[in-house]
Structures are given as structure tokens and as C-alpha cells.
Write a protein that binds this DNA or RNA. Sequence first.
DNA 1: ACGCGGTATGTTATCGCTAAAAAATTTGAT
DNA 2: ATCAAATTTTTTAGCGATAACATACCGCGT
Lengths: 352, 352
Amino acid sequence: MSQGSGNTPPKRPLTLRDVSEASGVSEMTVSRVLRNRGDVSESTRAKVLEAARELGYVPNKIAGALASSRVNLVAVIIPSMSNMVFPEVMTGINDVLEETELQPVVGITNYKPEREEAVLYQMLSWRPSGVIIAGLEHTEAAKAMLGAAGIPIVEIMDTDGEPIDSAVGISHRRAGRKMAQAIIDAGYKRIGFLGTKMPLDHRARKRFEGFTEVLAKAKLEIADSEFYSGGSALKKGREMTEAILKRNEENPLDFLYYSNDMIGAGGLMYCLDNGIDVPGQIGLAGFNGIEFLDGLPRKLATMDACRLEIGRAAAEIIAKRVETPDAPGGEVVTLEPSLAYGDTLKRKKKPI
Amino acid sequence: MSQGSGNTPPKRPLTLRDVSEASGVSEMTVSRVLRNRGDVSESTRAKVLEAARELGYVPNKIAGALASSRVNLVAVIIPSMSNMVFPEVMTGINDVLEETELQPVVGITNYKPEREEAVLYQMLSWRPSGVIIAGLEHTEAAKAMLGAAGIPIVEIMDTDGEPIDSAVGISHRRAGRKMAQAIIDAGYKRIGFLGTKMPLDHRARKRFEGFTEVLAKAKLEIADSEFYSGGSALKKGREMTEAILKRNEENPLDFLYYSNDMIGAGGLMYCLDNGIDVPGQIGLAGFNGIEFLDGLPRKLATMDACRLEIGRAAAEIIAKRVETPDAPGGEVVTLEPSLAYGDTLKRKKKPI
DNA sequence: ACGCGGTATGTTATCGCTAAAAAATTTGAT
DNA sequence: ATCAAATTTTTTAGCGATAACATACCGCGT
């Protein structure tokens, strides 16, 4: 009779049985009501819901998942949270999963392969319904786990390589090539490169490779380069730009290619502050298409990495595969990064 | 005899029993080996590990959690992922939890109370070991759930109010007051405010309240204000600054207080581009202390919101409480936001 | 040989829920 | 009324692990 009106914090956690007793039906029926499954008469449904609400019952998904062997989690494994790009991917993933009953669980690897392996193991031990993981490069053990997991795997950001299952991303090599071509077409000759030291950022590396490849075809090569790690990227961009320009004063560079927009923006500010004519005297370009470039005094040339879109597409693949478990899989979505010339990269010269 | 060398992806998912059979010991012993609990002889330990590795067995935490009623998840509920501040809080949380066996699970509310309630319900149904949730304002239902969950709860970002259990943050009222005082002390009189429209951002509201309160004591009030929503904050800051300055040309403002650094930076750039003397003709200040301010041509005055530190402290509270379950709880950590004058806010005038 | 204090392993009984099958109830056509 | 068909509800068995207890084993002093 006395169920208490939910004011006293219960010492023993509530279970289906409590709701069952409070509403006078079997546990199974309560379970059905709470999951909206199977036919339940309107009257018992109301009774049960009322009792559950009254008690403040929250179903135990651990038990539910074990019993039904259905886990509505999607493991998301990304290198970092602190550089704007992955939060945005996350936003895309969230937007899509919000509409489903799937829920993302995030693991951070800090760009360390062994950390990735450990995080993946942790994640898989929750038996998620799918995995979204950044990059195509993983340890052998990680690849084995992913291959054997028997769930949809989507490798994101990059499509230059062999995916384990599905992949969504852009070709970073192509992005590098495209940018190089635009720079060459605009007539720049002495090109400097500025980027991170991080040797494990495969995507930056691939962009660089594509970039130099096209340069080489035009009988050009990187005239000088500068690398950084840690710290405020904007400030670093400024400092590196100063350093590389000063170092090449007697034979000045006419273009600077930055491996991301933050350092690019720093470089742009340095140029503006020092009265350097952009893009006349020197051209600049970054990578990522981060939103705030819009507010800069001059718009930095960049290439959109389609971050939000990648997140959405990856989540959609997982969602679809969860709905139709025997669909084929292996889908590869290559998004086309669009080049934004902005105000720091001259347009192609008129064909002669 | 033939266990297969793990090359064939098994149709039936692996369980303890498989490892048990492969290694010729009981499931319990396998479990003990895999968790490093209890005494197991070196020889069987080796046998078991070898078998597990060979098979590619990954333990099922769902089952483990149910059996042991220990779930090493920490629910983290935040409003958004897209504005720099929460990713940084997440980084702090991650840094600390990485050292423990706890794992964060993130839910995004998009600043919507009803969404928060739903996300919280989802999260609690995983029976996490703790909850870290942004803000002190929640729906009644959400408060009830948090109160009844029987696990450590840490409300973060804000300490102006009554926490349910523990709290880590800064006093946004105090932050507003402090900034107002600094502005008054510097001798500014006609102050404009620029912020987001978001009526549900309680922390921005509290800063505003503290700010106007101190202004009122000095017989001052906000001379004009401007609000925005959506879009590139940097660009909006620029536009809003232009608008508010133009609108007050005949009786010009001498200070602009921005509710975040992004729009503040936009405003700063507008001023610099238009040859406005900062901080002589007009002073500027933002809020957050985001890293990239370092790279701006002039350093915006701001107040650090201690984001990383908040994340760490919150995670530490949870970790400690998980270790010592009968510790008291109710800990409130109020961090002191430090005022950075930068180059856009004059120092206090010498006392007369 | 006996029994003692260990350590090393195995057994049994849940954990809280859901799938599947069985039972009870209602409906409806004759 | 009557019985088959349809609907609603209950019962029975796990899901894959772990806690707690039970047993087997080992060396060793007497």
C-alpha cells in the first residue's frame, strides 16, 4: 500500500519488480510498456506509466542490453578535442544520432596509436552497435579487433587508403594537390610550408605529399619550411611567419602554405601588421575552412575539410546499418573539399 | 583440438566460456586472470592470456557491470560542443579520467532544458558511477533524478546557486562585478554591452547581472547594447561593434563589454581596422580567456573561465568519490577567475 | 599418516532485464 | 451459447559476467 511518494531517496535501487508490484502487473508487462513494444491495453499502460513516474523509476540499460544483446552505443574514437575540427565532427555525429536511439561514446587518443588501441579495446568491451574512428592508420591489433568486431566500422576524415569496412572523408592527397595546382596556376614560385611537427598526423602528411608531388611536376619545390608544436596556434603562426620571411629576405618567398587555418590566420595577421601586400607580394593559404576566418580583416584562402558533413555521413552509415543489419557495408564516401580563394590567393592567370 | 587461429571472423560472439574451454580452466579463473583479481598461478595465468589473445577475446563489460553492479562510466552533460569552451572542459575531464578506469560518456543538450532532461534520463539508465553536468539550473524532473540517483553529481561552470551535490566553477556574478569594477576604476563612463541572445545561457545572464549591479553602485548604467545569435562569432562581433558605435556617434561609447572573447576579438579587429584608438578612445573586454587571443595584434582584456581546471577538478571529485564511496560529498570548489587586462583596458588610475 | 594453514581453482546463485513460449482473456461469427 | 481466432498477460529461461562460498591441492611439522 505505502509506496512512498518518491521523496525518500531509496537505498535499494529500483527495479522492474518494484514497478511491477506497484502497478499490479507482471515485470514483463512493465517492460513492454516502458519500451513501447508489443500490445498492451491502454488501461494497464496508463497504470504502469503512472507507477513508474511515481516511483521515479529509470530502466537499467545494462540489464536490458545484456538480455536483448542490443546496445545502442556508437563508439567514436578521435585523436583530440582541442582543435576545433573534431568537436565539429562530433556535432555532425550528434545531429544525426539524436534522431535515432543511438548514443555516441567518445574516446580520445591524443594521436597515439597505442592509446588508440587501448581506447578501442575499452570501447569494444561495451559491445557497441558501431564504431566511428578517425583515420585509416591503426596498429595491427586494432585492425584485427575492428575486423573481428562484427559491427559496422566507419573510418573518417581520410579516404587515401584501404578502409576496414566503410569510410567517409576527403582525399588529403588530392586536397594538397589541388591547392598546389591553384598556387602554381596563380603564378607563385617560391613557396614556403608551415605546419605541425606531429609526425603521427597522417592527414597532414598526406596533404604535404600531394602538395609537393604537384609542385615537383611543375619543376618546383618547397623553398623553405617551418614546424611547430603546442601553444597557441594563432601566435605560433605569427612567429613562424616572421621567422620564415626573415630567413628568406635576400630571396623572398612569394607564397606560404599553412597546414591549418589557425596558423594561417596568425600568418595573415603578421603580414597585415607589417604592411606586407597580400596577395600581391605574398600569397597565403591554410586548410580547414574554419568558421571564424569569416571575421578576419582579409579572408584567408583555404580548403574546406567538410567536418560537419563527415560526421553526419558517418553517423548515417552507422544508423542505416543498424537498421538493416544484413546490408552489405563497405561503403566509401569521398567528399570533395572545395577551394576557397578568399583574399589571399590570386586567381588563375588568364590562359595565354 | 581445433580452435582455429583467429583468422575466421566468428559468427557467434566470444564469451568467457570460449576462453575457458580453450585454456582448460573454469570461467571463473579466466575472469580472475582478465581482471587481475585474486590469486592465480603464473602458469595458468599465462595459459589463459595466451588463449584470450589467440581467440581475440574482448570481455563483455555489459555482463560484467550487471554482475558486479559496478559501471565505470561517468556521464558528462554539456550544452554544446561547438564553442571552444566545452571541448576544453572535456579535455580536462579526460586528462584526469584517463588515469583511472573511469570513462566519460558525453551528452549534448543544445542549451535546451527538456533536452537536458531527456539526455540525463538516457545517461542514468546506464547506471553511471557519477554525473558531471553543466550549470545549476535544471528542470524539476532533472533535479529529482539527480537527487535520487545515489551517485556523485558535480555541477560545473557555475557556483552562483544551490548545488544538488558538489559543484566546481566560478561565480559568474562575481566575474561580472569584477570586470565592471575594473572598467569603472579605469575611468570609463559610457559602457556598451554586446552578447548573445540566448536567454537560456544562465551564466552569461549572471555575468550581466553582476556587471550592471556594480555599475549601478557607481551611478552608471549600460548605455547601449547589442545581441546576436548564430553565425561566425568573430564576424558578428565586428558587425555588432560597427552597429553600436555608429548608433552612438553623437554621444560616443568609451567601453564595450563583450559576453565572450570571440565577438570581442571581432570588435577589436573592427576597431583596429578603422583606426580607433584602443584603449584610449575606447576600451574593450571579453570573457573566457581563450587561447588564441595570444595571437591577436593587440591582446583583448578578458577574464579566464578556468575551463580546463574546472574539468579536472570535477573529474577528480568523481574519481575520489568512486574510490571512497562513503565519503561525505557536497564539496564546492569556487575557482577565482583572473582578470587579464591585456592591451584593451586601461589600468586603474592612481588613487588621488 | 594426519591435519593444519595456505594458495589455487571450481560451483552455485544471482545481477535486472528481455525473447520466446505458454496461458489467460477477450472478441466475434455462427 | 459455443468455439476458433485474436489479443493481452504471465511464465520460463537465459544473456555473460562476478561474488561468495566451497573444494581441491600443496608442503610441512609432528
